[in-house]
Every structure is written in structure tokens, then in C-alpha cells.
Amino acid sequence: MLEVRDISVGYDERTVLSGVTFDLREGEIIALLGANGAGKTTLIRALNGTLPLVNGEILLTSRRISEMSRREIAGQVAVVAQENETRFPVTVLEFVLSGRYVHGGALGWETERDLEFARNALRDCDLDGFEDRLMNHLSGGERQRVVLARALAAGSMTLLLDEPTANLDLSHQAMMFRLVRKRCAECGCSAIVITHDLNLAAEFADEIVMLKAGKITAQGSPAEVLTAENIRNTFGVDVLLDRHPVSGNVRVTSVF
């Protein structure tokens, strides 16, 4: 779906990403791991065409992203970005419906289909009954879920999620990942998720890409990537590894 070929991205003189190559296949979830400032958010912004590439190319369904219009990209890729806040009294339903922007004309009202997508996304995100609540009256975690609902309502085949679990409680963190997992299994969507929770990544991701100082340090299945050496190399911390008693996946415990 999404092919990233040897891309480099920089702001002004500074190179933030260099030589990044990976593929995101249909139905797949990739977890993007790395310390603060490693270039994870920059990578997400490059993937949806926000940042120009210094080098390399990104192909979205075999088309070069640099040759696609804003609308075309937005029709296929939905982003859940970090924190946003509005000072206007926007209701949750209005907010989620705005994610359907590319599907309607520039004028006119939402169709029944738009409303269906929005309501179902809200239900999926455990936000039944929130429709008429105002965005600026919600808690951080609730708002985060509404932002996710807006991305789901867009109906895009590729989801880019920048720390979607940052403000979420334990149950909603798991809900978030299960939801993305379900989407990918049901409709062949795929997702790239930035997270700092190595164990959530181990449970839910098909593949992990580890970034350090703008370069990929490791990539592959969770079992291949989540080794004590890779983690020490990328994050500079020592960890203990064992198996999750229920799922049998790798489990990471920090050693303080």
C-alpha cells in the first residue's frame, strides 16, 4: 500500500531522517518506536505529504505521493495527530463529520452515509452519547478518542497514528489498539502507530520499525526487533525480556 524508498527529510540545514526504507502492506500494523526526537513524527508528516522529501520517494498504492493532490492523499491517508484544541464551541459530531471533508463537495451538507460513518466511528471509540457534547468540555483522553474517531470516520485505507494512546487510560489504550487491529483485519486497512509502550507494540504490531537519530536501527517482527541489544542501542536502557504469560509475545521490563 505504502512503499517508502530511501527517503531523507530535513528542516533547513538539519537532516531529520535519512535513508529510511520500509513497506506497509495491506492489513498490516507497523509500530514506530524510538526515543524523543528520533524523527518519528517527522516520518509520519512526510508519509502524508506534509513535508517535502530531500531524497527518495514514497509510493501510495503505487503512485508517487509528490505527484498527488492534497485531496487525493487525504482520501487515502488519515492522520491522528498529537493534541489539538479549539476555542470554538464545536460538537463532537461536527468534529468527527469534518473528517469526511474529501468525500463531499466543497458545498452542501453531509449525506446519510457520512453520518453513518461518523456515528459508527463514535460507537467504535466508546463514545456513544457524546455526539452533542462540546469538544472543549471533554477530558484529554475523551478528546483523544474523538480525534481517533474522526480519522476512522474518514474511511481511509491507511491510518497514521501519532501517539494515539498518550492520554488514554489502561482500558482505552487496549481498546485503541484492538480497534485498529480490527479495522485492519476487516477491511484491509493498514496502520503506522507511534508509541512509547513497547509491550503494546509487541502485542498488536505485525512489524516494528525502530528509529534512532533519523535512521532505522532495527526492523522486523516484534520478536526479532525487541531484543535487549536493540533496545539498549535505541533507547539507552537495560531491559529484561520474557514471555507474556497469556499471549506468549515478547514482554519488556525496564531495569532501573
Binding site: 492522520v79 479549539t86 469534518s98
Partner: peptide, 23 residues
């Protein structure tokens, strides 16, 4: 009025608007 839908996204965030297809 013709930009009203785009403005609905812009009023939440310029980056959000861009992400969801607004020029």
C-alpha cells in the same frame, strides 16, 4: 460561504485541515 466546510476544519487546526485534504 463556499469555503465554510474548509473553515470548519481550519478552525480546529491548520495542520488537521491539511491532513484531511484542505488546501
Amino acid at each position: 460561504a463556499s469555503q465554510a466546510k474548509a473553515l470548519n476544519l481550519m478552525m480546529v487546526g491548520e495542520r488537521d485541515a491539511f491532513d484531511f485534504g484542505v488546501e
